[in-house]
Design a protein around this nucleic acid. Structure first.
Lengths: 192, 192, 192, 192
DNA sequence: AATGAATGAGGTTTCATTCAT
DNA sequence: GATGAATGAAACCTCATTCAT
């Protein structure tokens, strides 16, 4: 599908240059089409980014629904979500860079896809944290804030670090990050 | 000093619009001077941002030097640095938003100030973590990666959350974040 | 006939937006066909307008021929022509708006249909005026100029006013305009 | 004044090509400046036309105020206004062409200058016609409609004819048009 | 005949930077 | 030092037209 082909090439450039420094001409050239042809597939430059975020949000929403029904400790689900996230990262580093960077771009908060992505995912973390607290799996904490912190930690880590690293490093980073978050929230009492 | 006046006003706009969507005209108007006058104080638009980052990096470097000589548990120093960071945030929210957002902007990585800011601070965390590990204050961890994770966590949290919140919320966020990081790195053994 | 269907829909849009602001896509969408299909019926966008003008010119030419053979005062023929014109206006307001507006568009003067429409109709008025003068039906006047004035008056009135008015107003406008023109040209002597 | 220089050159092109077919580049080139410089003087392409109409409306409004205070037959004032109009036409044919043509352009009706021009002038004719009727200077007629007809007649005549004619013809056209309008409205009774 | 994705020239507008005053 | 009009490259987007299906 041509539309997806454009998205793929757009992500490459967006990852490297950032949204504001990516021109429609760059995208069209990389995609091997005329500038005008971009507009037969997307209403505007914005719409390309929106499409990317919508897509990725949907993927995550589906996975989260799947997680919700899983029978395991709630807190493990955050680890699983991290796995999912890092798998994606392994497969498409540029995509993650774009998601992470532009989701913090103030000029793009009007896009539905971006809004969903930045608002819904923390809500997921929050609900997991709340259930894990009820179950005594983790220490008492402010679910709202901590959910945002986790979201931010993941976002920041991916942006600042993972994007620059070699593939073989990813596994190490993931392990470190999981341990980091796990310790951060876990119920210290059970060690006593 | 006129130069500092420009910086102050520039930060206000940069925080709200992002670097790419901030024009030199906006800055000059807000600063109450002519566009041309910007260029008697700064070589270019870039240079304004560079100046901001240089400034802030120096402030942190000074504080870090001061911390290094302090006699206390190494791990407490991260907490202190967080305090310092959040005090700044309380005083100048816009500034923090700019630092955090633009330090992740790929188009600005050529600026000396930005480079120092993003490279040197993790090095500081790393050195603290290493010493704290030697001292048995914290669990064994990959100092490199964890330093980056902490940097990213702070960066992400400020950008995604602190910037939007009311002042009275800041204290709560800071406490939550300190506990989060503290737990994440601390030596679980001591609970046994 | 498909061709006429396209014309009909094109007129609707042309009336509302003007030629330059009417796109081939708009026309094709309104006509319920693909853009490409426009070009199986018409050589170009221009050609659509040309076809409209050709059509309407022919209608008028036929009516004028019919008038020429009529046995009545010459000057009454202008009134009759006005009736014919306003009947058309009553039936298809959009069409009249297009004819009137685009016949004054300098970028369309190269179209045969447009040229005929703007050049031939005044000639008709002129010939009537000349005969009416010979017959002493009207005052002495410059037939050339007055013919143009009448044409312009009709054109201007339709464009500026008739197009905006309610249907029930049309009759009033027509009466007023006929009286206006009639008085303007009539032989004052006969009142003495 | 540079702004007026741009207007002058813009009018030349607008007269020849029409608004939609006049590009900002054409205007800037003819005015001997860079494209971007247009925008230091005008907010947009629209604004150039608006400026033209505002200007001309003001000129007419001033003259009309002057006419109102004149002591003479009301109906003579329309003749005077025609004189004023044709004097302008003699001095700047292109300007008149633009005023006349674009005042009928549906895509420009949102401009304040255009609105004033097309709405206020007929109101002036109307008020003259009403007073002239009270005074028995002219026959009984619908002042509203006739005012519009006169406005349209002038507009149409200028556009369709005067714009194309040689200067020496103008005087003839003006005389013919004055007589035309005069007869059209005058009180036939006085001839009895 | 009908389609509609693809084209690319060309439209309007923005903006960092310069320079004569 | 300060000014702000002028610059022109480059941004996003439109649209009449074509052509493979």
């Amino acid at each position: 599908m041509k539309k997806e082909q454009i998205i793929l090439k757009a992500i490459e450039i967006l990852a490297k240059k950032g949204y504001a420094n990516t021109t429609t001409r760059m995208i069209s050239e990389r995609a091997g089409i005329a500038v005008g042809s971009l507009y037969t597939h997307f209403k505007s430059k914005d719409a390309i980014l929106d499409h990317i975020f919508q897509n990725e949000y949907k993927k995550r929403a589906v996975y989260i629904d799947h997680l919700k029904e899983k029978e395991c400790k709630h807190i493990e689900k955050i680890g699983m979500f991290l796995d999912f996230h890092f798998d994606e990262l392994g497969e498409n580093r540029d995509l993650m860079t774009v998601l992470v960077r532009e989701s913090a771009n103030p000029e793009l908060q009007h896009l539905d896809g971006v809004k969903e992505f930045t608002e819904q995912l923390p809500l997921f973390f929050k609900s997991i944290l709340e259930k894990a607290m009820e179950n005594g799996e983790i220490r008492k904490l402010n679910a709202d804030l901590t959910a945002e912190i986790i979201f931010s930690t993941i976002r920041g880590t991916v942006c600042g670090m993972a994007a620059k690293s070699e593939i073989q490093e990813l596994e190490k980073i993931k392990k470190e990050l999981k341990k980091f978050i796990n310790n951060a929230v876990k119920n210290q009492e059970e060690f006593k």
